[in-house]
Design a protein around this nucleic acid. Structure first.
Length: 272
DNA sequence: ATGGTTGCACGGCAA
């Protein structure tokens, strides 16, 4: 028995139903965690997701911006929606599925100027990462089976960007963000499940700008989307995959899905 | 060095 969890920043779920059908058909994921759904819960296309086989849906969205959701073939046993930085902006959804707590996170992008004194968006991003770090360290236990996925909007490694040197002052790859993400990773000794299978220095990206004339030809990507597991689950990692070809699924999100498969004790996966 | 695109919602933002 296995559990495949996908994370995908869909950049509007209402424009990506066909692409989700393709993802569902090709990977047969058990759980799909979405970011940037850009829709209120009342308008969330729940019926379309159920039609794809995802009978269990948790949506946490708002009008126009942000928004996270989890689609599941297995029952969702609990739902939480933590909020950070004193805001109500729908960036974090926690569900429990098959006894595993899955955290779907959309970290603030951070704007253009990598200076928290000059750019409130960058200050928000750093504060968001710090509050998450403190919360995990304070309230969670690395011995518990947790999965953290999402668009973390930081490419931490040199091999996570097309040019380390040229992106050192570009938001997503600056040293202060990489340090903040490292602190978050240390909060529960999180294991980078994708790099577990595709170690550096092999280059790996999950996002390519819409602005490139030919995204694949220039290949100026960044690895912004991540799947982390607590040490309790490290021994159960079976596979990881970045669905690079989804960048061509029309019309595309600028992010592609990232999938991780875990081994499951037979007793934990039950009804559909 | 600059501008390049997309989505929401229909005018600028956010990314």
């Amino acid at each position: 028995m296995t559990l495949t969890v996908v994370t995908w920043n869909v950049n509007s779920i209402r424009l990506r139903t066909e692409q989700l059908a393709r993802l569902s058909a090709e990977l047969r994921p058990d759980v799909i965690c979405l970011q940037e759904t850009k829709v209120t819960d009342a308008l969330f296309p729940r019926d379309a997701m159920v039609a794809l086989g995802y009978r269990h849906v948790a949506a946490h969205g708002m009008k126009g911006y942000n928004g996270v959701a989890v689609l599941s073939r297995l029952p969702i046993e609990a739902i939480g929606t933590p909020h950070w930085c004193g805001r109500q902006d729908c960036r974090h959804l926690v569900v429990t599925i098959a006894g595993i707590e899955i955290h779907c996170v959309y970290v603030p992008s951070g704007g253009d100027v990598p200076d928290p004194a000059a750019n409130p968006k960058f200050a928000h991003k750093l504060q968001f990462l710090r509050e998450l770090t403190d919360w995990y360290a304070r309230t969670c236990d690395p011995a518990r089976p947790l999965v953290l996925v999402g668009d973390l909007n930081v490419a931490p490694l040199e091999s996570d960007v097309w040019s380390h040197r040229q992106l050192l002052k570009v938001v997503s790859h600056t040293p202060v963000e990489v340090e903040a993400l490292g602190a978050l990773a240390a909060s529960l000794d999180w294991v980078d499940a994708v790099r577990h299978f595709v170690p550096a220095p092999q280059r790996l990206y999950t996002w390519w700008s819409y602005r490139a004339a030919d995204w694949a030809k220039s290949d100026r990507g960044r690895r912004l989307d991540h799947v982390w597991v607590t040490p309790a689950l490290k021994g159960r990692l079976i596979a990881a995959r970045v669905v690079r070809e989804a960048r061509n699924w029309q019309p595309p999100s600028d992010h592609v899905p990232v999938a991780v498969t875990l081994a499951m004790p037979k007793t934990q996966v039950t009804s559909r």
